[in-house]
Amino acid sequence: MSASVNALPKRCVLITGATGAIGGALARAYANQNTHLIVHGRQQAALATLAEACRELGAEVTTSSVNLTDETALSQWLQTLCAEHTPDIVIANAGKNTHPQAPGQLEPWDDVQALIDINLKTPIAMAQLLVPAMKARGHGQLVFISSLAGWHGLPTTPTYSASKAGIKAYGEGLRGLLAPHGIGVTVVMPGYVTSPMCNAMPGPKPFEWPPERAAKVIKQGIDTNRARISFPFPLNFGTWWLAVLPAAVSQWFIKRLGFDHTDHQEGA
Rank of each mutant, 00 (worst) to 15 (best):
A27L: 08
A27I: 07
A29V: 05
A29T: 05
Y30Q: 05
Y30E: 10
Y30K: 02
Y30F: 15
Y30A: 02
A31K: 01
A31L: 04
A31Q: 02
A31W: 03
N32A: 05
N32W: 04
Q33P: 01
N34I: 00
N34P: 01
N34D: 15
N34W: 09
N34F: 11
N34Q: 14
T35W: 02
T35H: 08
H36R: 14
H36P: 09
H36D: 08
L37R: 02
L37I: 02
I38D: 06
I38S: 05
V39R: 01
V39A: 04
V39P: 03
V39M: 02
V39K: 00
H40V: 02
H40A: 01
H40Q: 10
R42M: 05
R42C: 04
R42L: 11
Q43I: 02
Q43D: 14
Q44T: 03
Q44S: 08
Q44V: 07
Q44G: 00
Q44P: 00
A45R: 08
A45D: 13
A46E: 12
A46P: 02
A46T: 00
L47A: 04
L47G: 01
L47M: 05
L47K: 00
L47C: 04
A48L: 11
A48F: 03
A48T: 10
A51I: 01
A51G: 06
A51P: 05
A51W: 00
E52W: 00
A53E: 14
A53T: 09
A53K: 12
A53Y: 01
C54L: 07
R55S: 09
R55H: 02
R55A: 06
E56R: 14
L57W: 08
L57A: 15
L57S: 14
L57Q: 15
L57K: 15
L57T: 09
L57C: 12
L57P: 07
G58Q: 09
G58E: 12
A59M: 10
A59V: 12
A59I: 11
A59W: 07
E60I: 06
E60F: 07
E60S: 11
E60V: 06
E60N: 07
V61Q: 07
V61G: 07
T62D: 13
T62V: 12
T62W: 06
T63C: 13
T63Y: 02
S64W: 07
S64Y: 06
S64K: 03
S65H: 01
S65T: 11
V66Y: 02
V66C: 06
N67F: 06
N67K: 13
L68M: 13
L68A: 10
L68V: 08
T69D: 15
D70K: 13
D70R: 12
E71G: 10
E71H: 12
E71P: 10
T72G: 13
T72L: 13
T72D: 14
A73M: 13
A73Y: 14
L74W: 03
L74H: 12
S75K: 09
S75C: 10
S75Y: 05
W77P: 06
W77G: 03
W77A: 12
